[in-house]
Amino acid sequence: MTPGADPLANLKPIHLPAEPGWWPPAPGWWLLALSVVVLTIGMVLAWRHWRRRRAPVRQADAELARISAETDAVRQLSALNQLLRRVAARVYGPGAASLAPAQWSEFLTTHAPAGDQNPLRWQQLAQAPYRGIDASDDTLSIDALGMTRAWIQANLKRARPC
């Protein structure tokens, strides 16, 4: 090096690094993408589980709507009893659906929702298809629809999904 020479003259210009590319993403973006995928899968599985658990309720509601359109009170009460027996068989096992009318009305009373455990009402509902009713007595069938709907909603909460 010669005296008086500029030591900086021999330096090469500064080279800036290249701009970072968009691929591959930083680890934080991978973590975010993974968490979105896991969350989406979890939500889909939870939704399917909820739909599966609600399927019996939807089926019972559809059946109740069909039964409520029935004009013959004896047929309507018979259909309500059959629906109650199917729900009881699903929730409590097949033995519950094969009970005789007296035990059936006791079973309905025992498993009735709170505040609706009047044995006489459930006995009327359980025995109405067998004893027949007056054509003018439509208050029982209207009340029976509400009783059945409340009983099914209260008891299907105990059912396990398919």
Rank of each mutant, 00 (worst) to 15 (best):
T2V: 15
P3C: 13
G4V: 12
G4H: 11
L8V: 15
L8P: 11
A9G: 14
N10V: 05
L11I: 09
L11Y: 10
K12S: 06
P13L: 04
L16E: 07
P17H: 05
E19I: 07
G21Y: 11
G21L: 09
W22A: 08
W22G: 14
P24V: 12
P24C: 15
A26I: 08
A26T: 15
A26R: 08
P27W: 08
W29D: 08
W30F: 09
W30K: 09
A33R: 12
A33W: 08
S35L: 14
S35V: 12
S35F: 12
V37M: 11
V38L: 15
L39I: 08
I41P: 00
I41N: 01
I41T: 07
G42C: 05
V44M: 03
L45K: 07
A46M: 11
H49S: 15
W50A: 07
W50H: 07
R51D: 06
R52Y: 03
R54V: 05
R54K: 10
A55E: 15
P56Q: 05
P56S: 07
V57T: 08
V57F: 04
A60G: 10
A60E: 03
D61L: 14
D61W: 06
A62K: 13
E63N: 11
L64G: 03
L64V: 09
A65V: 13
R66V: 06
S68P: 02
S68Y: 10
E70T: 13
T71N: 11
A73L: 11
Q76M: 11
L77V: 05
L77A: 03
N81Y: 03
Q82G: 13
L83N: 01
L83E: 02
L83I: 05
L84E: 02
L84F: 04
L84C: 10
R85Y: 04
V87M: 09
A89Q: 14
R90G: 15
R90S: 10
Y92P: 08
Y92M: 12
G95F: 13
A96V: 13
S98N: 11
S98L: 12
L99D: 07
A100Y: 08
P101I: 06
Q103N: 14
S105M: 02
E106K: 15
E106F: 06
E106V: 11
F107L: 05
L108N: 01
T109W: 01
H111P: 00
H111G: 00
D116L: 13
Q117L: 00
N118S: 00
N118P: 00
N118G: 00
N118H: 02
P119G: 01
L120F: 01
L120C: 00
W122L: 02
W122T: 02
W122K: 03
Q123W: 02
Q123N: 03
Q123V: 00
Q124S: 14
Q124E: 03
L125W: 01
A128N: 09
R131L: 03
R131M: 04
D134H: 04
D134L: 02
A135G: 07
D137E: 14
D138T: 09
D138F: 15
D138S: 12
T139R: 09
T139W: 04
L140S: 01
S141G: 15
I142F: 13
I142R: 07
D143C: 03
A144D: 02
A144N: 00
T148H: 14
T148D: 06
W151S: 01
W151G: 01
Q153W: 02
Q153D: 07
Q153F: 07
A154R: 05
R158A: 11
R158K: 15
A159E: 12
R160Y: 05
R160F: 09
P161G: 06
P161K: 02
C162V: 09
C162D: 15
